[in-house]
């Protein structure tokens, strides 16, 4: 609900969370590029080969597969969490709805169709396929990004794997062959397991622990059994 008395802030303050994490993302990606180049070159020297420069490393399949394998697991995590929290609850968790509210809820509760407000997004008001699609757009985008980045992880992983095979005087494999290689599945599972652990532990820790002022937590004084409150 917007109010005419709502104070207005500048662009930076209104977007501080997105901008801060966007900046942290770029800084940490640069850190990965620099440390990855050093690690790659340690291996090159150990194998009696020439070191490569930063530009050579960031355009290599070795760097790209390391980036893509992490991105795909993050998008898988959000995709699964967004859809799972529609149907599964955790009593007492700020990450969950109240038990009994499982499912996609009514149009009135979701403020769509004829229950939409004047300032509701257009596609929430129009009904039909547009509202159906918009109602699932966040999860679908995460799912789509997961599939894209997982496919990119497979292609870049294949190229990197074949480079390593040749470096070890072994034959390269075809793309279908790579999809059955332990390298591909180990890269996928080692990232997936950490995402599932992070999500599962956040859901249950948020029942008993608080972070004062964070919307990821319940207000400090709210009971452990109280579900779905944020503060």
């Amino acid at each position: 609900m917007s109010s005419v008395d709502e104070p207005t802030y500048g662009f930076l303050r209104n977007n501080a969370l997105s901008l801060a994490f966007g900046g942290l993302f770029l800084a940490t990606l640069a850190g990965q590029a620099v440390s990855g180049t050093a690690q790659f070159n340690d291996q090159q020297v150990a194998n009696g080969l020439e070191p490569i420069g930063l530009a050579g490393y960031v355009t290599s399949s070795s760097f790209m597969v390391d980036v893509m394998e992490n991105w795909q697991s993050e998008y898988l995590q959000f995709f699964l969490y967004i859809f799972a929290t529609v149907w599964l609850v955790q009593k007492g968790s700020s990450e969950s709805k109240e038990p009994g509210q499982e499912g996609t809820e009514t149009d009135r509760e979701q403020v769509v169709g004829r229950h939409a407000n004047a300032d509701s997004p257009t596609w929430a008001r129009t009904g039909g396929w547009r509202t159906t699609l918009f109602s699932r757009s966040l999860g679908l985008l995460m799912g789509g990004l997961f599939l894209l980045t997982w496919a990119a992880s497979a292609v870049t992983g294949w190229v990197a794997f074949n480079g390593e095979q040749l470096g070890q005087r072994q034959d390269p494999v075809g793309f279908a062959g790579y999809l059955t290689e332990a390298d591909f599945w180990n890269r996928s599972f080692q990232n997936w397991q950490s995402e599932m652990l992070a999500v599962g532990s956040m859901a249950i820790f948020a029942v008993y622990l608080r972070q004062r002022g964070s919307p990821e937590s319940k207000p400090v004084g709210v009971a452990h059994a109280d579900t779905g409150q944020t503060g």
């Binding site: 399949s61 074949n162 390269p172």
Partner: peptide, 9 residues
């Protein structure tokens, strides 16, 4: 001829 990154066979 196989070329993969900076390696070839």
């Amino acid at each position: 001829v196989e070329v993969w990154g900076g390696d070839a066979q």
